[in-house]
């Protein structure tokens, strides 16, 4: 969207995208995650905002001014400096918005699942009934039946019994 002054205020360029990726990595710092999930999350966010003028203007402005706050390219900051900057702007509307849309995208990414040790879809593989649903071996096998020992379940404690009229 070009404005009267001819400046393109709301189209997102490569630097803005790089800032967004850096922001996501800093807000959700998982050393084990490769770049792919962060980049896909960033791209999905940028795609979504196309539908709303408010989100588009909000986000572009937010990402671009990260550089002002960083006194240089935000995308080049080290982890600590980037994290400090985000904490300083924790309540900024654009950052709150990004967090809201980023979480389901990032943690719904199959590459993230693999990094965390989650196996995803399982029905087509026959579930886990023969693939380790009970393979935890560092604790004894517990009882699965209901208790049938001598202790009675006390439904109402003594002090809460109804007084006889």
């Amino acid at each position: 969207m070009a404005t009267d002054s001819g400046i393109d205020e709301t189209s997102v360029g490569a630097d803005d995208r790089a800032n967004l990726v850096q922001l996501l990595r800093t807000a959700y710092p998982h050393p084990r995650f490769p770049d792919g999930p962060y980049e896909r999350t960033a791209d999905a966010i940028l795609e979504q905002i196309g539908e709303s003028v408010w989100h588009r203007t909000l986000l572009t402005r937010g990402l671009r001014t990260l550089d002002d706050a960083a006194h240089g390219p935000f995308r080049d900051l080290d982890d600590i400096a980037a994290s400090e900057l985000l904490h300083a702007i924790a309540d900024a509307e654009f950052f709150v918005f990004i967090r809201g849309v980023a979480v389901p995208l990032l943690y719904g990414d199959p590459e993230v699942w693999a990094a965390l040790g989650y196996e995803g879809e399982s029905f087509s593989k026959g579930g886990y009934v023969n693939r380790g649903f009970d393979d935890l071996d560092w604790l004894p096998d517990p009882r699965v039946e209901e208790y049938d020992g001598s202790d009675e379940f006390v439904e109402v404690a003594d002090q809460d019994q109804l007084k006889k009229a």
């Binding site: 649903f133 009970d134 604790l139 004894p140 699965v144 209901e146 208790y147 020992g149």
Partner: peptide, 26 residues
């Protein structure tokens, strides 16, 4: 019949037993 113990239940039920709970099952 009861369902068998899955991994999450193994932790849960052993924890329950350890603190003296009795009325646990699958």
């Amino acid at each position: 019949p009861p369902l068998p113990a899955n991994n999450n239940y193994k932790v849960f039920a052993n924890g329950a037993e350890s603190v003296g709970y009795k009325f646990y099952a699958t």
